[in-house]
Design a protein around this nucleic acid. Structure first.
Lengths: 212, 212
DNA sequence: AAACCCTATTGGCACTCTGCCAACTTTGGT
DNA sequence: ACCAAAGTTGGCAGAGTGCCAATAGGGTTT
């Protein structure tokens, strides 16, 4: 009468198990630093053997990079959508949607962007950089219809600079509480318009003046 | 005829040995990531036993934090000096001196600021944050004589946002080579003036409009 | 000049963590 | 019910860190 011996562990589909481990890893890596999270911690909280992590991700570092990639799929900079209206309206809507996203994913975003540390990690840097560069691509698409100036290195650079301003300003809102959401919105939109319309031409002129 | 047996190792003064180890650690931590540098590496290159590191710094992490503190003594943001002339002149000189410093310490600065990664490290974050906050303090002192607006949370926040812009713009120069040094200078000075004179009042008005 | 003391410095032990792999178990198909 | 494929486990080897007792410079004292 030996009834079916209850399975000691459940066998999941590849992608499902993988996703489950990633969820736990993402949570732990957001809570503590890379070094402070051991693969044993992740395995324990995920309810699996430690060796399974290596089966799915190879090394701890690759698991970590996978988490970073997942986090980065959440936009790290304002990304405009095609829309009617003037440049001010387009940017205003983009910034607003971005701030909305930040408010909802506050903890995760702070973990991804709010922490800066010494110790160059070229791979993580590359992942974040690529995401930011894509955000700038979208911004350029949005700006192009309104600005006579052709796409230039200077435009890209100024938009990257503005992205840096956007991240810092958002930290002032979410982390230091020196600005309200509405104030961040105002700051981002106003500075964007001023940078593109007024400052960018001067920067481009500076370049030309030196090369001629 | 046994001559004086050559000492197997030299005994240095506390601070001197400490400094020597710090120099090696700083170099290695600037070259590779925290995890990729072992205490054995540092000890070997410094020509001392590994145990000595722990004698001087306790743990690897504390040694690392000490390196960060040393790096941060190099300003991470433009810091104005008291000077005659209008606001534009003061900021122009500050930015210029800061860019000069960047050009000279290119590698070190890129290692300290140019790398952003996931993995909150609250202590490192605190050290860098404190340095940036001090830079903003100096900026506020510089701005005060020229602006009627009293020191406010909004002013601090806008200056922090501008600092973010400054770091991003500098990366566009040093790392991505999309801007020349002169263009970064122009971008920083122009955006500073515009932010403080034109955008800041709007941001402050946004705050008031909502609290009343 | 020899003995002496202070402390800088070393070397090794214990522990944790990572990477890897062979063996085992579950599960769906035949 | 058997079998094969794939998911999962457990343990071993190597590396790294933290710690501490023992050793050995080098200036000071006698």
């Amino acid at each position: 009468m030996a009834s079916n011996p209850a399975p000691r562990w459940q066998r999941l589909e590849h992608d499902e198990r993988r996703r489950q481990i990633l969820v736990v890893a993402r949570r732990l890596f957001s809570e503590r630093s890379y070094a402070a999270v051991s693969t044993s911690d992740i395995a324990r909280e995920a309810g699996v053997a430690r060796g399974l992590l290596h089966h799915y991700f190879g090394t701890k570092r690759e698991l970590y990079l996978e988490v970073v990639r997942a986090l980065v799929r959440m936009p790290s900079n304002p990304v405009p959508l095609p829309s009617g209206g003037g440049l001010e309206v387009v940017i205003g809507e983009s910034v607003d949607r971005w701030l909305e996203m930040l408010e909802r994913n506050r903890g995760t975003w702070l973990a991804a962007v709010g922490a800066q540390g010494l110790g160059r990690d070229v791979e993580v840097e590359a992942i974040l950089d690529q995401a930011r560069e894509q955000a700038v691509d979208r911004l350029i698409e949005a700006v192009e219809p309104y600005e006579a100036a052709a796409t230039s290195d200077e435009l890209r650079a100024v938009l990257r600079a503005w992205s840096g301003l956007a991240e810092s300003a958002s930290l002032e809102w979410l982390h230091r509480d020196r600005l309200s959401r509405e104030q961040v919105n105002t700051l981002l939109v106003q500075s964007f318009l001023v940078l593109v319309r007024d400052v960018l031409p001067v920067v481009e002129a500076t370049g030309r003046a030196l090369t001629t």
